[in-house]
């Protein structure tokens, strides 16, 4: 239900449900800080949160630069995956030939551990931006294409029978029924793909790189600069989180009916 009152109520509900989790996070950091100081554990093994913060702040411009590089790889690879996989899913869902010829290939390729291909990309495309983009693309691509195909094929038989009694054209049916019906599935794939994109970028940078957060991570690790390793991981997680939530925001805007439907279903089961 839209409306300001609804928005206010949902914010209160959000605080109520997330407040506890937030509190536990804060408590965790406090325990961590105190435990490290009390036990006198070595900083290169487990630095306290305060040290991580001060070390990060000293070198935040280096990290920011690396974060920017990695973010670019994530966004470009993910965008490419979306642009390729949704039309491909459409083709597979609506063309008998594409379904018989291409779909089995997609299913087979999906089984290959994509990360194992990363070294091959270095041989083919060198150390620059391209192999990172391709690995992000490859990891995000499969969940999006598979769930989009499922979405486009999910049309309810009775709904389609009803639609046939209206004499609607194929394009009208697609626009008014098949596409909206597919969107929840597509967004499920988009979210899984978004979560994998950050992983893919870091792995690609691990394999061969001279910039980006994955590269920095290996550098700090080699220098036993554990506080900076922690800081880099935190930044990486934040990037992944932002990308994921960006997709979720788009989902809320695109299919508010589905999101609130899920919320109702959840309320009903609680």
């Amino acid at each position: 239900m839209p409306g300001e009152q609804g928005a206010a109520r949902s914010f209160v509900a959000w605080v109520r449900t997330r407040g506890a989790a937030l509190l536990i996070f804060v408590a965790l950091f406090v325990v961590w800080e105190v435990a490290v100081r009390v036990t006198g554990i070595k900083e290169y093994l487990l630095p306290p949160p305060s040290t991580i913060w001060t070390e990060f702040w000293k070198r935040h411009d280096t990290v920011a630069l690396g974060a920017w590089v990695t973010t670019q790889e994530i966004l470009a690879g993910y965008a490419l995956a979306v642009v390729v996989s949704v039309p491909l899913a459409l083709a597979v869902a609506y063309s008998r030939f594409m379904e018989e010829a291409v779909y089995p290939v997609i299913v087979f390729l999906q089984i290959i551990p994509k990360i194992a291909i990363a070294p091959l990309f270095i041989i083919w495309f060198g150390f620059g931006f391209t192999p990172k983009l391709l690995l992000v693309f490859l990891l995000s691509f499969f969940p999006i294409v598979v769930s989009s195909i499922a979405g486009f094929k999910s049309a309810d038989a009775d709904i389609m029978d009803f639609a046939r009694t209206t004499g609607a054209s194929g394009w009208t049916l697609f626009r008014k029924i098949r596409l909206p019906q597919a969107l929840p599935h597509i967004f499920t794939g988009l979210k899984v793909g978004a979560a994998l994109a950050a992983t893919a970028a870091v792995v690609a940078e691990f394999v061969a790189s001279d910039r980006g957060l994955g590269y920095l991570l290996l550098q700090y690790n080699g220098q036993l600069d554990t506080p900076m390793v922690f800081a880099t991981i935190v930044i990486l997680s934040l990037i992944g989180l932002v990308v994921y939530y960006a997709v979720e925001v788009v989902e809320r805007l695109a299919i508010p009916w589905h999101v609130s439907q899920q919320a109702t279903a959840k309320d009903a089961t609680l």
Partner: peptide
């Protein structure tokens, strides 16, 4: 097309 039809399940569009 010159008819109205109602099925056992209401088959409404969720959106």
């Amino acid at each position: 097309t010159n008819l109205g039809i109602v099925f056992q399940s209401p088959v409404l569009l969720d959106w």
